[in-house]
Write a protein that binds this DNA or RNA. Structure first.
Length: 710
RNA sequence: GCCGAAGUGGUGGAAUUGGCAGACGCAGCGGACUCAAAAUCCGCCGGGGGUAACUCCGUGAGGGUUCAAGUCCCUCCUUCGGCACCA
């Protein structure tokens, strides 16, 4: 990083493994515990056997551990969670603010991950008269229910006696996540013999256990409408369950007997009691109203996102600051006793458990309430907790409180954040959640942590992402040795826009080196003409010099926009290469005049600062060569004169029927009428329109004239 | 299956709101300089036809809108990414 000349402010460095940093993790945790945003629950969780720890949903990618790529199992364990679901709506609403400044792709991924759906929770009835609640987003199909399905893990099934049913439940429970969600997942189920009553129709339908119903979404049980749901249809066919049509295709009526797949499109309600004849779209609202009036159930919002499981059975991490007392129960460590320091003198026993469990000096403590012996929580926090708020700690790394108020209000939110797309539903979601929690605690003045986000592409080498663990990295030292650090910087920025993936190749690195050397030679050749306080006001310039000035100001404008607004550095560099080409093509005799010296002085005093962010060492050296004594790092970014970004003459294009037939040079301020006249009087245009009828003439000022003939 | 992004010369990639497709590089070809080479400077560089002026075609494929489409709309193909029994 140092050889490449990156400008980090190391006085703001923070280190997440230092107790002085992670004490604030613990402080945040206790605050969140007080607010009910951190809680412990016994739940089925993702477990990685290789890492010997649980994982968050976001970290169990397709049933594979994100760190070691081994299959994830489900285990029932008591674990700590952050209640990110309480912020699901805020996280979604915040997207409005981010639209345009965050890549659409990231917003979409987060939106899908949060997975908000609106529907109806309906209480079906057991024979005992007790409620059997289900969740549906398709109230319009409720008259078509022919069976019900419940998740194998559902506690409702604990009382089931039938040995065949019990055996089925055990079989499904032992399957791994991958087995249960594999590609050729066959829907499997068994009839419990229990009958459930549909409050809308009074019909009694069988209750099945199904491997495809998820315990932790909705109520863990569903109503099944085979006529209008693909999964229900397949299940009904397999177990010979009746199918009842309640939405008909208004164009070609459906015959239930000959149906080969569920009808999932829009249509008209049939067999639906009072709702017959209306469109199913209207029926969604009408049936929901009816349901609420009759007190069968109520409208509800559900989310796909799960609470963030943050406990880890890893030793290396920030200890969760909780104490267990036999008399007082579970208590957070009081603020004055923070941080709970992770012991670094540890003895790894070689078993799968955290060494903290064997360390009495860590484990044993006194209850902060009653003073009797108690023990500490031995789980540590997910490392993603550290990175969920570090950006705000950068504002005041040494502060006694979590943040220095003035500093945090000055710096936050982050103007420009940069990261990989792989963090779309991991770090970027967690960081937004934390930022919102900190906002609600009054720590931050903005809800969103990052105003603008740029997701840079991956660097690909030999077909896969360049990474240390793959061993396909390219060391820049070789190229630095040969061409210098600035060439490496320039080349990488010039190769492609930062958002795009880049297939690494050093082909073309010569071009960047050549450009730098071209600039070097030109400036050294003319360094003696440089006037510090040049004065171009009121000077009459020759066409060549005026043109050079215009090119300069256009370049400043474009480069400024490419950096500030577009983050497209390759085109900024291309533009500076063009300016260099113009300099080389300028008449040496004209450059040697007094006016020429003035113009060159303007060029040098703006071009070099423009180069500085790309090639800082090189620019600094040239700057000094010109006799400047103050470093470029404190120089102002060059400004441009808008008037000088406009050319006096422009090239006008004449088209006949959309095809270019002639190009001519005209004054830039030519009127629309004159443009048309010139086009009409052109000999070449006349050749093309002679004897034809002119239908239309389109003139776009400053651009072209198109004559439409038939 | 659903959602999203992308597809432009030999090659990396350009192209404000629809307005000259291929900027700027790399590779290649030619010229100048040199005893020669390197470096440098200058020029050419999508395809077909034509001696030439010029002309026709061309942004994954096929349609459409428009005076005008790489850009907008529809259908499809390919690649990459995300979600994936979410009821």
């Amino acid at each position: 990083l140092k050889r490449l000349g990156f400008s980090y402010d190391w006085t703001k460095e923070v280190t997440t493994y230092e107790p002085e940093y992670y004490r604030w993790n613990q402080w945040m945790f206790t605050k969140m515990y007080e607010k009910g945003l951190a809680y412990k629950k016994f739940a089925s969780v993702n477990w990685c056997d290789t890492c010997n720890t649980v994982l968050a949903n976001e970290q169990a990618e397709n049933g594979i551990c994100w760190r070691c790529e081994s299959p994830v199992l489900q285990k029932k364990l008591e674990q700590w969670f952050f209640k990110i679901t309480a912020y699901a709506d805020d996280l979604l609403k915040g997207h409005d603010e981010l639209t345009g400044n965050w890549p659409e792709q990231v917003l979409t991924m987060q939106k899908n991950w949060i997975g908000r759906s609106t529907g109806l929770t309906v209480n079906f009835k057991l024979e005992s008269g007790a409620d059997f609640p289900i969740y549906t987003t398709r109230p319009d199909t409720i008259y078509g229910v022919t069976f019900m399905v419940i998740a194998p893990e559902h506690p409702f099934l604990d009382s089931v006696k039938d040995p065949k049913v019990k055996a089925f439940i055990e079989k499904i429970k032992t399957q791994s996540t991958i087995e249960r969600t594999s590609e050729d997942k066959e829907k499997e189920g068994i009839d419990t013999g229990i009958k459930i009553t549909n409050p809308f129709t009074g019909e009694k339908v069988p209750l099945f256990i199904g491997n495809f119903v998820l315990m932790d979404y909705g109520t863990g049980a569903i109503m099944a409408v085979p006529a209008h749901d693909t999964r229900d249809f397949a299940f009904a066919k397999k177990y010979s369950i009746p199918i009842k049509l309640v939405i008909d295709n208004p164009h070609t009526p459906i015959d239930v007997k000959t149906m080969t797949e569920a009808y999932v499109d829009e249509g008209v309600c049939v067999n639906s009691g009072p709702f017959n004849g209306i469109s199913n779209k209207d029926a969604i609202e009408k049936i929901s109203d009816f349901c609420e009036e009759k007190k069968y159930g109520k409208r509800e919002v559900n989310y796909r996102i799960r609470d963030w499981l943050i406990s880890r059975q890893r030793y290396w991490g920030c200890p969760i600051p909780m104490i267990y007392c036999d008399t007082c129960g579970m208590l957070p460590v009081p603020e004055k006793n923070l941080p709970v320091v992770l012991p670094t003198q540890v003895d790894f026993k070689g078993d799968s458990r955290s060494p903290l469990i064997h360390m009495d000096e860590f484990l044993k403590c006194t209850c902060p309430k009653c003073g009797t012996p108690a023990r500490r929580e031995t789980d540590t926090m997910d490392t993603f907790v550290d990175s969920s708020w570090y950006y705000s700690k950068f504002t005041s790394p040494g502060s006694k409180e979590i943040f220095d108020t003035n500093a945090i209000n000055y710096w936050m939110p982050v103007d420009q954040y940069i990261g990989g797309i792989e963090h779309a539903v991991l770090h970027l979601l967690y960081a937004r959640f934390f930022s919102m929690v900190m906002f609600d605690m009054g720590l931050l003045k903005s809800k969103e942590p990052f105003n603008r986000l740029l997701t840079q592409g991956m660097v690909i080498k030999d077909g896969s992402k360049m990474r240390k663990s793959k061993g396909n990295t390219v060391d820049p030292d070789g190229i630095i040795e040969k061409y210098g650090a600035d060439t490496v910087r320039l080349f990488m920025l010039f190769a492609s826009p930062p958002q795009k993936d880049l297939d690494w190749s050093d082909k073309g690195v010569e071009g960047s080196f050549r450009f730098i050397m071209r600039v070097w030679r030109f400036i050294h050749k003319h360094k003696n003409v440089y006037i510090k306080n040049f004065k171009l006001d009121g000077m009459q310039l020759s066409d060549t010099l005026q043109n050079l000035r215009i090119e300069l100001h256009r370049t400043i404008k474009i480069v400024t926009r490419d950096i500030e607004e577009r983050a497209q550095y390759n085109t900024a560099i291309a533009r500076m290469m063009e300016l260099t080409n113009t300099l080389y093509q300028a008449d040496e005799k004209e450059l040697a005049t007094t006016e020429g010296h003035q113009v060159l002085s303007e060029v040098f005093s703006t071009f070099i600062p423009m180069l500085a962010p790309f090639v800082p060492h090189f620019a600094e050296e040239l700057w000094e060569t010109l006799g400047n004594t103050v470093s470029l790092t404190t120089a102002e970014w060059p400004s441009f004169i808008e008037e000088l970004t406009k050319r006096d003459e422009i090239e006008l294009v004449f088209q006949v029927n959309g095809k270019i037939r002639e190009k001519i040079q005209v004054p830039a301020d030519i009127s629309k009428e004159d443009m048309e006249k010139m086009a009409m009087s052109s000999d070449r245009i006349q050749d093309f329109i002679a004897g034809k009828q002119i239908k239309k003439v389109i003139a776009i000022p400053g651009k072209l004239v198109n004559i439409v003939v038939v």
